[in-house]
Design a binder for these strands. Structure first.
Lengths: 341, 341
DNA sequence: CTGAAAGCGCTTACAG
DNA sequence: CTGAAAGCGCTTACAG
């Protein structure tokens, strides 16, 4: 393995100068820098991340925390973030919570993570007070993706969940629906994770704005998964009269809803309309009407927001948070209620 | 941050002993070990991965390379692998190739990766001769997942792709189909990546075994994605007569096929039967008949195969490779051809 | 602008 | 079984 001394020798300078030249510090003559870069390239030299980190430098790695990498939104965000980070020379450490509450806690509390990375991206990660303390203590730059997880001093990238839910529900109301059910995300971890609460609020706001009443019996819980959406729908099928439309807080739950409705012999949208949120790749296949959110764009922007601080931009130049737009995509899963046609 | 000296002081031993005790080396008295463990726990001590690695120890991290984390199979394998590794105290570095050929090369060739991790898992990663050389030179333990990527000395975890494709095709033949199309995976990177070739072979073997001829015009290329499957199907719709059944080499391509068929006014399975491979979460929703493969199980087993070597099992105890079983799951997307009912 | 030297926090021969 | 000391490969004050 080539070490820094090899490069120093070949370039005819000290290791200190090699270190400075390679990291682009301003205190190196252009001529010297070129000589060093050339030597490093010739030897295929890459600084050891361990040695670098230990000596007070950087690891050139970023931690990305997601609830479940298998869900469409999260894998899409991660893929885009990885691309941007890799391009900038950073490796990505993936931490998949997978419903393991202990993991989240241990992860954010322990020094283990902090010693491995230069920054972190928390995607829809619920935080409790002690987590905030640990994060603040680490003084590490970071970014949050998805609403609900806002860390003081960190930029956040997200959509307006309330507005997205409101527009989905308003679409159903506009078609003439009056009995509109909601399949919500999980409330297992309330903490500071509010996506499911925000989408419920948007749903309720739209109902109220239209002079409709909110009916708790029509608000059932999925857990942001296909099977969870299916179970929630099975529950809804017990209502009498049935809802004429369902707003599922994410596309995956909508898929589960459609499957269960069809199994029950109900037609979508003739008997029951279904709308989701996301614009999952499969939504087009299933013909699901949905409120699209730019997932890859969120991953890309979040990664970029990290790059400034990683390159040493001062804390005095805070990166702006951003709220990306969503848009209603009409397909075949929604229609006016049966009686009205 | 607590360092090893803090623990040593509290336990009343040298740092060398702390290091040995914490890593479970046999040369420490039980009494001493307990004292050290207790002190470390009280201080919440975790060895710095950088210092550890630099001093000749381990990073306690594993690199996982996937073509595209957004695809069902890969995210499922990664999630299961991450769970197993995390449980054993290892972090996961995710490298998403995303079709960037340069990335793969740079990744496997450079010392960068080798200095960051103790082992690597290559999932459906195409390898060329120089990659093998780099891997061998690194002397790093590893495991491959998915056929086609077999590295000498590393165990591999996979299914029998030829058999899976054969059983899917045989199912269609058994229903009475004679004109059976194949939507294959990408052949962009032939290299040592043979999944798409194996599935084609299984398809052809089944046809030949049934006395049918293989027709190149019915063998079109998707790229393992929903949209790729859709495009391939658009191409197939130009054939006259149309195929009465389609074997898509993965479920995602099958979804794309179904969407395009329906848009073209064709009914599935009344006009055209469709079968896939995977048993993607959405397959149930869409009613897709498919050959299921245990994705999470592959991730779990691959991670476990790494744990032995990571804990220092000698090279003399090679870990066995494993080929997991697949099984046909009948749903609603396949039926006898139109004329025969 | 550049270099000599100390030091980051561990692990590993080497002694005992 | 345990400890003192060297060393892993960098970066960073400190001089010059």
């Amino acid at each position: 393995m080539t070490r820094i001394d090899d490069v120093a020798r070949l370039a005819g300078v000290s290791t200190a100068t090699v270190s400075r030249a390679l990291r682009g510090l301003p205190t190196v003559t252009e001529a010297t820098r070129l000589r060093v870069l050339d030597a490093a390239a010739r030897l295929g030299y890459i600084a050891s991340p361990s040695a670098s980190r230990l000596a007070g430098g950087k690891t050139r790695a970023v931690a990305v925390v997601v609830p479940r990498i298998t869900r469409w939104f999260f894998s899409t965000v991660v893929e885009a973030a990885e691309d941007t980070l890799q391009e900038a020379g950073y490796s990505l450490l993936l931490y998949n919570l997978g419903g393991r509450e202990r993991t989240r806690h241990r992860l954010l509390q322990t020094a283990n993570l902090h010693q491995r990375v230069d920054a972190m991206m928390l995607i829809a990660t619920p935080l409790e007070p002690s987590d905030f303390a640990a994060i603040t203590a680490s003084a590490m730059p970071g970014v949050t993706v998805s609403s609900g997880t806002v860390v003081p001093g960190w930029p956040s990238v997200r959509i307006d969940d309330v507005a997205a839910a409101r527009s989905a529900t308003a679409h159903l109301i506009g078609l003439g629906h009056r009995r509109i059910a909601h399949i919500s995300g999980s409330s297992a971890d309330e903490l500071a994770f509010t996506t499911h609460l925000d989408r419920r609020r948007g749903y309720q706001e739209a109902l109220i704005a239209a002079g409709l009443t909110t009916d708790p019996a029509l608000d059932v819980e999925g857990d942001f998964t296909i099977s969870g959406g299916g179970r929630a729908t099975t529950e809804l099928l017990r209502r009498d009269p049935l809802p004429s439309a369902i707003f599922a807080a994410c596309d995956e739950m909508a898929f589960g809803a459609i499957a269960v409705l069809r199994q029950a012999g109900l037609r979508v949208p003739a008997d029951v309309s279904v709308i989701g949120v996301d614009d999952h790749d499969v939504a087009r296949v299933v013909g699901l009407t949905t409120v699209a959110q730019p997932a890859a764009e969120q991953g890309r922007l979040a990664a970029r927001a990290l790059l400034g601080p990683l390159r040493g931009a001062g804390r005095d130049e805070p990166v702006a948070s951003v709220i990306l737009p969503t848009r209603l995509i009409l397909r075949e899963s929604t229609a006016p209620p049966a009686g009205t046609r």
